[in-house]
Simulated scan of single mutants.
Amino acid sequence: MSGDGGCPAPAPEVGAAAIAARLSAIGLTTRVEQHARHTSIEAEVPEALPAETWREVLEVVAQADRFGLLATSLGGRTLWAAVRKVVPATGDVRGPGHQR
């Protein structure tokens, strides 16, 4: 299948790096952190972010598995996105307590 809708998702590391790069290109300073099961991307959002830029930001973070916006009572806003890491298939991955 061709087009964006039919293409397989990129590898998680590539996806997280691409999201961070696009947010940086928009003008946001990003932080990327590796976790056991996901990669997180965070960016401080300035108060005066134009509506057109918000639309672009939302298009970017919509590529993540999860995303959100944390707002503090002091007026700070942190945009976050998480991209799941692929868990390698190694035998029985059901874990303890799961019997056949």
Rank of each mutant, 00 (worst) to 15 (best):
A25K: 15
A82P: 03
P88T: 00
E42I: 01
T39G: 00
I19P: 09
S2F: 11
V60I: 14
L74N: 09
T72D: 11
T90K: 13
V32D: 02
A18P: 00
A51R: 14
V60Y: 00
P8C: 02
P96F: 03
T53Y: 01
R37V: 02
P96H: 13
Q34H: 11
D4V: 09
V32I: 12
A43I: 11
E13D: 15
E42L: 10
R31T: 05
A11Y: 11
A25I: 07
K85N: 06
T78M: 12
G76Q: 15
P8W: 03
A9S: 10
V87G: 01
S2E: 13
L69H: 03
G27F: 03
A81K: 01
E47I: 08
D65K: 09
P46E: 10
I19C: 03
G76P: 02
D4Q: 06
T53N: 04
P12E: 03
A64I: 03
K85Y: 03
T29H: 09
L49S: 06
Q34Y: 09
L58E: 12
V61C: 07
D92K: 07
T53G: 06
L70E: 11
I26N: 02
P10K: 08
C7S: 10
R31D: 11
T72S: 15
T72Y: 04
T29M: 11
A71G: 09
A82I: 02
A25S: 15
L74Y: 05
F67M: 11
T78S: 05
E44Y: 03
E56I: 01
A51Q: 12
L28N: 07
L49W: 06
A81V: 01
D4R: 12
V14L: 04
H38D: 11
S73E: 13
A48C: 06
V45S: 02
P10F: 01
Q99L: 13
V14K: 08
L79Y: 00
A51P: 15
E42M: 06
L74V: 07
V60G: 00
G6E: 07
A25E: 14
S40P: 00
G76Y: 13
G75Y: 07
G6C: 10
H38V: 07
P50W: 04
I19K: 05
R100I: 04
